[in-house]
Computed example of a mutant assay.
Amino acid sequence: MISAGLDARILVDRGGYTLSADLQVAPGEVVAVMGPSGAGKSTLFGAITGMVPLRGGHVRLDEQVLDAPAGPHVPPNRRGIVLLGQEPRLFPHLTARENVAFGLRARRMPRQQSRVDADRWLQRVGLAGLGRRRPAQLSGGQQQRVALARALAIGPRVLLLDEPLTSLDPDTAGEIRTLLREQLDETGTTTLIATHDAVDAVSLAERLVIVEQGRVTQEGPVREVLRLPQTGFAAAIAGIQRLPGTAEAGLWRADGAAVHLASHDAASLRAAQVAGAPLVALVHAADVRLRPAAALAPASEPGRWTARVTRLEQTLTGVRVHTGAPEVAADVSVDAVAAAGLAPGRIVALQVDPAEVRFTPAGRA
C-alpha cells in the first residue's frame, strides 16, 4: 500500500469522558502525540483504527471515508492502518520469520514469497539469521524489532505507534528509536507516535500534538512547541517553567520578582505591553542562579529577587531547589546545597539573565 494522508475529526464518549480532537497528518509525515495519562491518546488511536466507535466526526484516508456515524464503517482489518503498542504481541508458536510472514500471507501472498520478504525485513531490522527463533528465544528488544518488521512488511497506509518503547530498558529503547527513524525515513510511512518521552518526539517526529483532558491544547513543529509551551504539561515535558505574571513598563513582574523584557521578544509581545497585561515567563531551571540571600544586593533589582525555599528535590545531576512567591525552581549541585546549608524555609537570592527568559502572552494556545 501507499502511505495516505489522514484526516481525523474524533468525537468519542466513554462513560463520563469525552474526547474531541481534530488531527490532520500529511502523507509520509511523522507526528508525535503527547499528553498526561488519561488524556485520550489511546482512545484517539482506537477511534482511528475503528476499534472505538465515533459519536461524531469522521476518519478519512486521502479521499476515502473510513468511518462516520451516519456513513460507512470500514472494519479495522480493511483500513490499511496498523497499530503497534508497548507489547510486541507476537504469536508464541510461530518463528520470527513466520510472525513477519503472517500479515503477508493474510494478503494472499504465496507462501514462498512471504518467507523471502519476511527474511528481508528481518535483515532490515537487524535480525538476519534469527528467523527460525520463536519469541521466547528472543530478548524484549528483538521481539519489538520483529513486531516492527511485521507492521512495516505489509506496507500500511498509516502506522500508529502507541508507546512502543515504554517497556524497554534505556539502551534498547535508544536502539529501537534509531531503527524506527531509519525505517520511517526509508519507507515514507505516514505515522502517529503516542509517547511520554520528549526524546521520541524530537528524534522521530516533525510535528507535535499535545492532548489534555480530551482536547488538543497545542500543536506545531516539535521544536516550536517545546520552545514556547502553552500549558503546564507541555512546559514540563520541555523542561521549562511557566511563570505567570504581568507586563508593566518594560518589565515582567510576579510577586517580588521582576525581569526586563528582552528586546528580541518585543515583536511578539507588543500586545502585552499594556500595564497589568497577563504575561508568562518561560525559563529553564538550569538558567536560574541561586545564592545566599546576602550575596545579591539590591535584591529588588530586575532579574534579582529573594525568595523562601519550599522544598528540595533530587535530580539525576544534582538538586532542584523550589522557592515560593513566585514559584521558581533552580538546578544546583549537591555540593552547592551543602555549602549554602539550603533547607526548606531558608531565604535565598535568585538571579536570571533576561536573555535566557522567553515570554508569551497568558492564554496563548
Rank of each mutant, 00 (worst) to 15 (best):
D7V: 15
I10T: 09
G15L: 03
G16Y: 08
L23T: 09
L23Y: 08
V33G: 09
K41Q: 02
K41N: 02
K41H: 03
A47I: 10
I48A: 04
I48C: 01
I48R: 03
V52S: 05
L54D: 07
G56Q: 13
G56D: 14
V59Y: 02
L61F: 13
E63H: 14
E63P: 08
Q64N: 07
D67T: 12
P69A: 04
P72L: 10
P75V: 12
P76C: 08
L83N: 13
R89D: 14
H93K: 09
L94Q: 13
L94E: 15
T95C: 14
T95E: 15
E98M: 02
L104R: 11
P110N: 08
Q112D: 10
L122H: 09
Q123I: 06
Q123D: 12
R124Y: 12
R124H: 13
R132F: 09
R132T: 10
A136L: 09
S139F: 15
G141M: 15
Q143K: 15
A149S: 10
R150A: 05
A153P: 00
A153K: 01
P156I: 03
R157H: 01
L159D: 10
L161C: 14
P164M: 14
L165W: 07
D171G: 12
E175R: 09
T178K: 14
D185N: 13
E186S: 09
E186C: 09
G188F: 15
A194H: 09
T195I: 03
V199Q: 15
D200M: 14
A201Y: 10
A201I: 14
L204A: 13
E206C: 13
E212M: 04
Q213A: 12
Q218M: 07
E219K: 11
E224P: 13
E224V: 10
V225E: 06
Q230E: 11
F233D: 04
F233W: 05
A235W: 06
A238W: 05
I240M: 07
E248W: 08
A249F: 09
A249K: 10
G250I: 08
L251D: 08
W252E: 05
D255Q: 07
G256K: 11
A258M: 11
A262S: 12
D265N: 04
A266Q: 04
R270W: 04
Q273V: 03
G276P: 12
G276L: 12
V283Q: 02
D287A: 06
L290A: 00
P292M: 03
A294F: 02
A294Y: 01
L296R: 05
G303K: 02
W305L: 01
T306M: 00
A307P: 03
R308C: 05
L312G: 01
E313K: 02
Q314V: 00
T317F: 00
T323R: 01
G324Y: 05
G324T: 03
G324P: 14
A325H: 07
E327V: 06
A336C: 02
A339W: 02
G341E: 00
R346Y: 01
R346V: 00
V348R: 00
A349V: 00
Q351D: 01
D353W: 11
F359K: 06
T360N: 15
T360P: 15
P361M: 15
A362N: 07
G363N: 10
R364L: 15
